[in-house]
């Protein structure tokens, strides 16, 4: 793997917490490993309490790893200077509400290393980008939750980082707000930024992520493309046919490895993609009509539930 292309690298990361004074340590991350490539939108998904935010906090230097190594842009996460090149928007952010939108972004731009000369332009540009230009001079205490979420993203972008980490960026937003944030992430990605996103809203991930890692109970259960298949790489197609005899359907089912469903003379056969043309030839020769051909995509929800089931099965055994 090309190290220059590797933006985030997490290797055998372990994190233990002590729940309270004198209590035994509890392991929340069990040696997880994954990497994020340059220019991709990476979805880090998992159920509540799986360890998503803990992992992100380790990457942000807010929590120290117990074991393992984490780097961002080739720098160990305990370093500070490289953070000029990253942006982070936490979940349910709180900001100094006595400041206006413009003042808070100026503050963060200052911390992000933007010179005083460039700050007004940088702040105006990012306010425009997140759609807050109209409220720039209003105090944050008057902002809605959706507006604060945009401030969180704006402060992560104001110093023009090359990597952006977002923790549940769509959390608590209405459908319009979610779409706007999704569009913004896509825009950031097309600007060449790498986006790392923690979330449990699978539909959003499906729409915008190139790759995902699924974390369940502190372990990586899946890592790969969003289109990754369950139980093997074989893609399947739902072939819906009219006018088949039940006998032929049963025979074809076993011959072509298809699963049958439907009733009467309308039968749907979920068939491996490579068998579809043979199935169709055979069915057409029997005088059947083709009603529909629908490729079956292993959607993220299936993938996610499968990973969770496998993980809980594994932990039970």
């Amino acid at each position: 793997m090309n190290a220059e292309q590797e933006i985030v690298r997490v290797e055998r990361l372990v994190k233990d917490f002590r729940p309270g004074f004198g209590l035994r340590r509890k392991r929340v991350l069990h040696g997880i490993s994954f990497e994020v490539q340059k220019g991709e939108v990476f979805g880090f998904i998992g159920p509540n309490g799986a360890g998503k935010t803990t992992t992100l906090k380790v990457l942000m230097g807010l929590i120290r790893p117990t074991e393992g190594a984490c780097s961002v842009l080739g720098h160990d996460v305990s370093e500070t200077a490289f953070r000029e090149q990253i942006g982070f928007a936490p979940e349910s952010p709180y900001f100094y509400d006595f400041l206006t939108g413009r003042e808070i972004l100026d503050f963060y731009a200052n911390l992000g290393g933007v010179s005083s000369k460039q700050r007004p332009d940088a702040v105006a540009r990012v306010l425009e980008k997140v759609g807050l230009a109209h409220a720039a001079d209003a105090r944050l205490r008057t902002y809605s939750k959706g507006m604060l979420q945009r401030v969180a993203i704006a402060q992560a972008l104001v110093h023009d980082p090359s990597v952006v980490f977002l923790d549940e960026p769509m959390s608590g937003l209405d459908p319009v707000g979610r779409k706007e944030i999704r569009d913004l992430i896509v825009e950031l990605n097309s600007d060449g930024k790498t986006v790392f996103m923690n979330t449990h809203i699978l539909s959003d991930v499906e729409m915008i992520c190139d790759r995902v890692a699924i974390i369940v109970a502190g372990r990586i259960a899946y890592q790969g493309g969003v289109d990754g298949a369950i139980g093997g790489d074989e893609r399947r197609v739902d072939v819906t046919l009219l006018g088949l005899t039940p006998e032929f359907a049963e025979q074809a089912g076993s011959r072509f490895g298809a699963e049958l469903s439907g009733r009467g003379d309308r039968i749907t056969m979920r068939t491996p993609e490579k068998q579809v043309s043979d199935l169709l030839s055979s069915a057409l020769a029997q005088g059947a009509q083709v009603e529909e051909l629908l490729p079956v995509r292993a959607d993220l929800e299936s993938l996610f539930l499968h990973a969770v089931e496998e993980s809980s099965g594994g932990s039970e055994s």
Partner: peptide, 10 residues
Amino acid sequence: RTIYTILSKP
């Protein structure tokens, strides 16, 4: 949690 955004900067 204002510290999160501050310490994520350099």
